[in-house]
Design a protein around this nucleic acid. Structure first.
Lengths: 193, 193
DNA sequence: GTCTATAACGTGATAGAC
DNA sequence: GTCTATCACGTTATAGAC
């Protein structure tokens, strides 16, 4: 016992905090959430939480980077090429309809982080740039494979697909009868006709 | 003098407050903005502002409904049919690239208002429902006129176009090299091929 | 119609005990 | 690793003078 168990308990607490923070930021955004509220939901006091994450901004960034890691390692996203990657995004949308918290997190924060002084501003600038880069490449690969309508411009199509995913998330959150995956699929189907 | 001038001055103050509040809510969202800050920017104390708009939520709703009124009456939006309405939306996107404040306002608030307890939640639910209704009708009219690719489903295309506009606004705010109007136009061009 | 003063509370963060 | 106690400040809103 001793060190081993202690650090394991610390890791468990960290995980609990990150899960709880994700839900809170998702519901009320970064600015609308208080450290105290997250701590209470964890059964902690707020200085106890601050011990693990020195500032509220640190906590937010930890939530975001942890999600990126789990998303990246999970599905072998990096190995997908061409239309397979685009289909994977539709599949992600379908899966997300059962994970409201994650959708709320990005929908709420991406709007908030539009402000240049927001702690996650740089993160979202990078995120969209790399998303558009990956999707542009996928469209280009599909075009080279002769699968794509030749009038489609890959870089524009990438910005469109990313925008579509984001916009549909907001509409779905406000009205669950909006079907994100179906609507995305119809968009892709038209481009690959 | 007297009543006439008094009420005119009151109306001027109200207008100044609404303009300033729009800019503030756009920059920092509803939750990130304080009534004090808006009042100071107007050269007022915060109780003076509260005299005109009893609560912060009232002020937000006044900002939103005023924008709806001026948008609605301005361009004769209601009289547009079919593709003309869709083109008008592209034109609005083009105009909005010169009005960052308005774009920020809706991009920030639509994410925030995803939370059911947000003061503008009901407003955005209504807004998207009526937007989709109008755009669905425009697609249907274009289809009846034989202008539209027959594989396009009006209701899905409407959700797509609205989502596209929203998502592109976020991307543009984070990276001004994203061209909202051009990207929207490419989307429409493909549907009307 | 607008002000000063203040109430009542919530905020992120720190110091130091245990 | 977590606590209590506290700081310094910001929040919306109200009371009452002018």
């Amino acid at each position: 016992m001793g060190e081993r168990e202690l650090s394991e308990r610390g890791a468990e607490t960290r995980t609990l905090i990150l899960d709880t923070a994700l839900a809170a930021f998702a519901e009320s955004g970064f600015r609308g959430t208080s450290v105290r509220d997250i701590a209470t939901r964890c059964g902690l006091t707020h200085p106890a939480l601050i011990y693990h994450f020195p500032t509220k901004a640190d906590l937010l960034m930890a939530v975001l980077t942890r999600r990126d890691d789990s998303e990246g390692t999970a599905a072998g996203y990096d190995e997908l090429r061409g239309r397979a990657l685009l289909d994977h995004l539709v599949e992600t949308a379908r899966r997300n309809a059962a994970r409201r918290g994650v959708v709320e997190l990005y929908a709420t924060l991406s709007g908030e982080a539009t402000a240049t002084d927001h702690p996650a501003h740089a993160y979202f600038v990078r995120r969209y740039a790399s998303l558009r880069r990956d999707v542009t490449r996928a469209y280009r690969e599909a075009a080279e494979a002769g699968e794509l309508d030749p009038r489609i411009v890959p870089s524009l199509a990438a910005a469109q697909l990313v925008a579509l995913m984001d916009g549909l998330q907001v509409q779905w959150l406000l009205d669950p009868s909006v079907d994100m995956a179906e609507t995305l699929e119809a968009h892709l189907a038209a481009q690959f006709a």
